[in-house]
Design a protein around this nucleic acid. Structure first.
Length: 311
DNA sequence: CCCTGCCCCTGTCCGC
DNA sequence: TGCGGACAGGGGCAGG
């Protein structure tokens, strides 16, 4: 479900509640939600209880909370995950999988509910590893670290091992556009497949891929390597514009499946041009928007504005 | 290496 | 009403 804007809304909501707080108790109601936890270092609960939380960080669709122990609590929302902040004693949310009780020095006790219908999401405790380029592991609301910055940080130049293979996202100041264009130039696959490949560029999912391709007037099967540099630049610009607009509007909610940490929906669904708009006219040319299968999922496009361009 | 297909899950909605 | 099938915002992995 959640793509970069939705995950960032969650990160920003958790940050003031969790940074500086300590975990006092952990309850796991659904062990399958820990599938990405490697228990060789110890059980999830044991590695988390008593830990102080140092920040809330995001790269693409991955969230993590660096812990005083040097490890991190990693969370991925999958298709249907939510993280909700609740008052102590709150009733169990439907499909509650994990509850953290935390004590914040100013806010007092808070309950953090990890809710996930399909159990594609997960929480895990993971080791941290240095970033390949020595810059920040992800976005934490702090000033980005430039190359050569000598600030002592501990967690900031590191990221969870299970996130190390994920590319930086296009809103990350350390994202390299030239590197991205070089990868496009050697990929013969359809451009949508590349946009969804989190090891190439992270944070884009099915909704924003379709929206960005519409904005850039590209067909999902256009070979990535066939894009001219100006078209590749325009596509990246479209991706960034759409992700930022969605973020400002609080993300995209179709139903109660995506909500922020307070259970509130985002408004970007009103701004979608093609995703879910099949049967309605294209805002540019009036042609009916269609929905087609690509990579075993729906792709939404204007068949007139978005054609595969000749090689 | 790269790419494709399949798997992991539950819930909801639609048509018969 | 009931039931089968399609569909849903993601990602990891096996096998070609």
């Amino acid at each position: 479900m959640p793509e970069l804007p939705e995950v960032e809304v969650v990160r920003a909501g958790l940050d003031p509640a969790l940074t500086g707080a300590s975990v006092t108790a952990v309850e796991v109601f659904e062990p399958r939600s820990l599938r990405r936890h490697d228990s060789t270092a110890g059980p999830f609960v044991d590695l988390l209880e008593g830990q102080r939380m140092l920040a809330v960080v995001r790269r693409g669709k991955f969230l993590w909370v660096p812990l005083a122990s040097g490890r991190a609590l990693v969370a991925h929302l999958g298709m249907s995950g939510q993280v909700l902040l609740r008052a102590p004693g709150a009733v169990d949310d439907r499909m509650l999988r994990i509850r953290l009780r935390v004590e914040h020095p100013v806010l007092g006790e808070l309950w953090v509910h990890f809710v996930d219908q399909r159990i594609f999401g997960s929480m895990a405790i993971d080791t941290m590893t240095p970033t390949a380029d020595g810059r920040s592991g992800g976005f934490s609301g702090l000033e980005p670290m430039a190359a050569g910055d000598r600030r002592e940080t501990g967690w900031q130049r590191r990221l969870p091992s299970q996130v190390a293979h994920i590319a930086r996202d296009p809103l990350d100041p350390a994202f390299s556009a030239p590197d991205f264009y070089r990868v496009l130039a050697r990929k013969k696959a359809g451009i949508k497949r590349v946009l969804l490949d989190q090891t190439v560029i992270s944070g884009i999912g099915n909704i924003y891929a379709d929206e960005a391709l519409y904005a850039a007037r590209l067909h999902y099967e256009q070979p990535a390597s066939s894009l001219t540099l100006p078209r590749a630049r325009a596509l990246l610009a479209a991706v960034r514009t759409i992700l930022q607009r969605a973020l400002v509007e609080g993300g995209t909610s179709f139903d109660a499946q995506y909500v922020n940490v307070n259970g509130e929906s985002g408004y970007f669904s009103h701004s979608l041009s093609v995703y879910g708009q099949q049967g309605t006219p294209c805002a540019r040319c009036g042609t009916t928007i269609v929905r087609e299968q690509f990579m075993n999922r729906g792709s939404h496009l204007c068949p007139r504005c978005q054609r595969v361009r000749g090689s």
